[in-house]
Amino acid sequence: VFVDDHLLEKVLELNAKGEKRLIKTWSRRSTIVPEMVGHTIAVYNGKQHVPVYITENMVGHKLGEFAP
């Protein structure tokens, strides 16, 4: 499973602090992992960042699938 390192670091850091804030990313190719559930990730679609709230059903899919 591929997840960009910088994105995973941000998610794990927020989980350690117990925070839930918006994470901006250009990494549409990253796979959604269970650690991301409950976070809102702003995924770049080529024009703007689209906020995507991550749920359990999204695990295993790519971030780009949810930012048309």
Rank of each mutant, 00 (worst) to 15 (best):
V1L: 05
V1G: 15
V1Y: 04
V1P: 15
V1E: 15
V1R: 07
V1M: 09
F2S: 08
F2W: 12
F2E: 11
F2V: 08
V3L: 04
V3G: 04
V3K: 01
V3F: 03
D4G: 01
D4T: 01
D5K: 15
D5I: 15
D5P: 15
D5N: 15
H6A: 14
H6K: 15
H6F: 15
L7G: 01
L7M: 03
L7C: 02
L7F: 01
L8W: 14
L8P: 01
L8F: 13
L8Y: 10
L8E: 02
L8M: 10
L8N: 02
L8V: 04
L8G: 01
L8A: 03
E9R: 12
E9P: 01
K10D: 10
K10T: 15
K10W: 08
K10C: 15
V11E: 01
V11A: 01
L12Q: 10
L12D: 04
L12W: 07
L12N: 12
L12G: 04
L12K: 12
E13C: 14
E13Q: 09
E13L: 08
E13H: 07
E13I: 06
E13W: 06
L14M: 12
L14E: 02
L14F: 05
L14D: 02
L14T: 03
N15T: 04
N15E: 04
N15Y: 01
A16L: 11
A16T: 10
A16I: 09
K17W: 06
K17M: 12
K17N: 10
K17S: 10
K17P: 01
G18P: 02
G18Y: 03
G18L: 04
G18K: 09
E19K: 08
E19L: 10
E19S: 08
E19R: 07
E19F: 04
E19Y: 05
E19P: 03
K20A: 05
K20Q: 07
K20C: 09
K20D: 02
R21A: 14
R21Q: 13
R21T: 11
R21S: 11
R21I: 12
R21M: 09
R21D: 10
L22H: 06
L22R: 07
L22W: 09
L22G: 04
L22F: 06
L22T: 13
L22N: 05
L22E: 09
I23R: 01
I23T: 02
I23S: 02
I23A: 01
I23H: 01
I23L: 08
I23C: 03
K24A: 07
K24C: 15
K24W: 14
K24Y: 15
K24E: 09
T25C: 03
T25Q: 02
T25Y: 02
T25R: 02
T25I: 02
T25V: 02
T25P: 01
T25G: 02
T25K: 02
W26Y: 15
W26K: 15
S27W: 07
S27F: 06
S27V: 07
S27G: 04
S27R: 04
R28Y: 07
R28K: 09
R28V: 05
R28F: 04
R28H: 06
R28W: 07
R29P: 08
R29H: 14
S30C: 06
S30Y: 02
S30H: 02
S30M: 03
S30K: 01
S30V: 02
S30R: 02
S30T: 05
S30F: 02
S30A: 03
T31Y: 14
T31S: 09
T31K: 05
I32N: 00
I32R: 00
I32C: 11
I32H: 00
V33T: 06
V33E: 02
V33F: 05
V33H: 04
V33Y: 04
V33G: 03
V33S: 05
V33M: 09
V33L: 13
P34M: 15
P34W: 11
P34L: 09
P34F: 12
P34K: 14
E35W: 03
E35T: 09
E35A: 13
E35N: 07
E35D: 09
M36S: 00
M36P: 00
M36D: 00
M36I: 02
M36G: 00
M36K: 00
M36T: 01
M36L: 06
V37E: 09
V37W: 05
V37Y: 09
V37P: 00
V37K: 11
G38H: 12
G38R: 06
G38P: 00
G38S: 10
G38M: 07
G38V: 00
H39K: 02
H39M: 03
H39P: 00
T40K: 09
T40C: 14
T40D: 07
I41T: 01
I41M: 07
I41K: 00
I41V: 06
I41E: 00
A42M: 06
A42K: 05
A42L: 07
V43Y: 02
V43Q: 00
V43G: 00
V43K: 00
Y44V: 05
Y44S: 07
Y44I: 08
Y44H: 10
Y44W: 12
N45S: 10
N45V: 06
N45A: 08
N45Y: 08
N45F: 09
N45I: 07
N45M: 06
G46F: 07
G46S: 11
G46H: 15
G46M: 09
G46N: 07
G46D: 06
G46L: 13
K47P: 06
K47A: 12
K47C: 15
K47Q: 10
K47F: 12
Q48D: 13
Q48S: 13
Q48E: 14
H49E: 04
H49W: 13
H49N: 05
H49M: 10
V50S: 09
V50G: 03
V50T: 11
P51S: 12
P51N: 12
P51C: 10
P51W: 05
P51D: 09
V52C: 13
V52T: 08
V52I: 14
V52D: 00
Y53R: 11
Y53A: 10
Y53V: 10
Y53I: 13
Y53L: 13
Y53S: 11
Y53F: 13
I54D: 00
I54P: 01
I54A: 02
I54C: 14
I54E: 00
I54V: 14
T55Q: 14
T55F: 10
T55N: 14
T55K: 12
T55C: 14
T55W: 10
E56S: 11
E56A: 13
E56T: 13
E56D: 11
N57I: 07
N57W: 10
M58E: 06
M58P: 00
M58D: 05
M58S: 06
V59A: 06
V59N: 04
V59H: 02
G60S: 10
G60T: 11
G60W: 15
G60A: 11
G60F: 15
H61M: 12
H61S: 12
H61E: 10
K62D: 03
L63R: 00
L63K: 00
L63S: 01
L63C: 02
G64Q: 10
G64S: 06
G64H: 10
G64F: 10
G64T: 04
E65W: 08
E65F: 11
E65H: 14
F66D: 01
F66H: 06
F66V: 05
F66C: 05
F66K: 03
F66W: 10
F66N: 02
F66A: 04
A67Y: 03
A67T: 04
P68R: 10
P68E: 09
P68G: 11
P68H: 07
